[in-house]
Computed example of a mutant assay.
Amino acid sequence: MTSADQVRAAVGAVTDPELRRPIGDLDMVREISVDGTTAHVSIVLTIVGCPMAQRIEQDVRDAAASVPDIADVQVDVGVMTPAERRALTEKLRDGRPVRQMPFGPDSLTRVILVSSGKGGVGKSTVTANLAVALAQQGLRVGLVDADVHGFSIPGLLGIAPGTQPTRIDDLMLPPVAHDVKTVSIGMFLREGESVVAWRGPMLHRTVQQFLTDVFFGDLDVLLIDMPPGTGDIAISIGQILPHAEVLVVTTPQQAASEVAIRSGLVARRTGQRVIGVVENMAPYTLPDGTVIDLFGSGGGAEVARVLSEPGEHGAPTEDVPLMASIPLSPALRQGGDSGHPVVLDQPEDAAAQAIIRLADTIAHRGRGLSRRSLPMRLS
């Protein structure tokens, strides 16, 4: 290979931070030449004002400089033409029509809804940390904040206020935080606006757009942070994603566990599969050995037991395990307030350890073929 070929190979391997693909595959690399020890590199970005422009330029500069005998790198940055952007979006869709939901029953992406019967049980905190823990295991993870009225995922992940998805024509690229691609209604509110007062039709359309217009790319897992209860959004997502799996979050308190059972039963009526229960705010142990159980104990196990019983009219159900019991943790709360997930900042914390084990269980557990059609051909 000539020096110019080596530079092109190195630059082409640079990954676009938003699209998560090599810029060479995205046709973003243009002319490359080498004059002595100086490499001249020309690239194009997808849009004017690309939020990742500086990072991409620096990564390109570093990649070119890594080639032997290259001492100086000059980078020229341009922007794609409208025709080039159209060709890029068609390539990204891989033949999928515009506004077609890519997470259908035949998708290889596991869709997991994180639900709760009532608010205040730490569902969103669990969802955010679980997403990060799954990403830490090398999985490609997306996160949809479907709790439109009580959105909190951007803050829990440390996504700066005002951060919006990048638009490439009719595609929206979600911001990436801690290797998790994330979208929330909080990213679309006008400056100074903090309240969403919408009813059923608007809520349905918003969730549908999150699942169709946002380009997540190839994902291993898509987590959806559900609103508490069994209202409009739960019904809408039950219609859009009847094949999804459901993780039910509760606290040990009886009042919370009784309501959590209802959310699992409603999800099951739409055809969704309840894969497990997570008990949050469980008893924790002080350094002197004293056990503090502010919310009692046993609620998570009770939810799992009831959801494992035969369904309506004696219909059989699958075993629903208690997949995690997460103790009360100041570090978990502090991480949520600061936007630094505890599974990253304090992985040795007892709550972080419980969530990391939960992520490991989910990552190594198959999603099952129950209620799924298999491609079969009789000869």
Rank of each mutant, 00 (worst) to 15 (best):
P175M: 02
I112P: 05
Q136F: 02
A352S: 14
D220F: 09
A9E: 15
A256S: 12
G186A: 11
V249M: 09
E90T: 14
T163P: 12
I326N: 00
L286Q: 13
L143Y: 12
A352R: 03
R357I: 05
K123S: 10
P310R: 06
V249S: 06
P347R: 12
D94H: 11
A354C: 09
S373R: 11
R8I: 07
R367D: 09
A351F: 04
A71V: 12
V259D: 02
I153S: 06
A87C: 05
D106R: 09
A13G: 05
P22G: 07
N129Q: 07
L157M: 15
L171D: 03
Q239L: 13
V60L: 04
L211P: 03
L286P: 01
G36P: 10
M101V: 07
M172F: 14
A146K: 07
V11S: 02
S33C: 00
N280I: 03
F215I: 01
A10L: 06
D349A: 09
P341F: 09
A256P: 00
F151C: 03
M28L: 15
G299V: 05
T163V: 13
M52F: 08
F215Q: 01
S3E: 10
H243A: 04
R377H: 14
S329E: 10
V60K: 03
S297R: 03
R96V: 15
I355W: 03
T212F: 05
D106C: 02
A87H: 13
I185R: 04
F151R: 02
T251Y: 05
I224M: 15
Q353A: 15
P321A: 11
L113F: 11
G122R: 04
D35F: 01
P310E: 08
L134F: 06
P165A: 13
A197Y: 06
Q253Y: 07
P287E: 07
Q334H: 10
I355M: 04
P228K: 10
A71S: 13
